[in-house]
Design a protein around this nucleic acid. Structure first.
Lengths: 180, 180
DNA sequence: TTATCCATGTAAGAAGTTACATGATTGA
DNA sequence: TCAATCATGTAACTTCTTACATGGATAA
């Protein structure tokens, strides 16, 4: 699963420009896939060279021509083949959680700041996903949307319920020993 | 936040070999950070060259000498500086969810297989985290452990409750229209 | 007897990010 | 007037994964 496959996937929903693909990856797909323009544009060029997508150019005034990509039949076959392979494990990298693991080393005002930002971030992400009507989506995307909501809600609730562990008082107090 | 920082972090808990650091990243830290030997060993060499860690070698029979690394004072300062920077966003890449988004394209026996494997995977991860006694951990690690449990449990529960969306019947039926 | 654990390391290459370059339009 | 949105692309660079190399001990 690389950017090329993800581009094919987004194009399987309907034709799109590189810019629009990026917007999709910032929106409803963001909780399980991210990619930058610097990855997407070269990926589309490569897919085009391999005949997995086709382009249609639409002139615009003041902006570069819009390049609207569409999945080809070979592209659809390639996507199917790629999606049929057993999935690798999820890869997660959270700087926030890494900081929290070593929170004993940090100044408490910094921690409070990081927690507040994280809570705001949850609200933003949740608002974005809640703004999508699941009933208009096909089952696969409805499933993925619900998954994102479930996980963000769990993270949000957990942080709100357990942020006291990150307070200065809790952090400087020693861990309860097994002998207690 | 790169492998070097993560190595410093693990060493802030206590001295360890590269092999042991890898085990930590496969265990209690796995839900927010992963790294391979090919990343860890060069990272430790670089940290040693920069004086951020020290080594002590312990001869072994039949195996390469054990290299036990310990955090130096400058290493601790470097770790603190790195952890004090505002965290970047979480990066998640889930092949499983990508497959589920485009599940309409897939054969149903394949989907059933992927779901079953995913459920097993959740059980394995949850069992691993539940095997750790939170009361023996300092607050930061207790927080991160609980976070991992909360998120895995949410994912597990969501998949069990909504896997019917991935069934052949649900997938071939059209999405409910807004006009319904 | 076959795989897994222990233990270190290198090297090639994949796969990406960040920063740059360009520039009109629109909203605050 | 400042930032954001739209729109494409390149190039340098970082960062990591995968595969290889070595090999004894131990458990199934």
């Amino acid at each position: 699963m690389n950017v090329k496959t993800m581009c094919l996937g987004v194009l399987s929903i309907g034709e799109a420009t590189g810019y629009e693909i990026k917007k999709q990856l910032e929106g409803p797909f963001h909780h399980f896939y991210q990619a930058s323009f610097g990855a997407i544009y070269p990926a589309l060029s490569a897919l085009l060279a391999d005949g997995l997508v086709s382009v249609r150019e639409e002139p615009q005034d003041g902006k570069p021509d819009k390049k609207i990509y569409a999945l080809s039949e070979t592209g659809r076959a390639a996507l199917l083949a790629e999606l049929s392979r057993p999935p690798g494990p999820d890869r997660v990298r959270s700087e926030f959680l890494a900081q929290m693991v070593f929170v004993e080393l940090l100044a408490d005002d910094l921690v409070a700041d990081f927690v507040a930002t994280r809570l705001e971030h949850y609200e933003t992400q949740l608002a974005g996903l809640r703004g999508i009507d699941p009933d208009r989506l096909p089952p696969g995307r409805r499933f993925a949307l619900g998954y994102g909501l479930a996980v963000y809600e769990a993270g949000n609730a957990y942080l709100r319920a357990n942020r006291h562990l990150l307070d200065d008082a809790a952090r400087t107090a020693p861990a309860r020993d097994a002998a207690d």
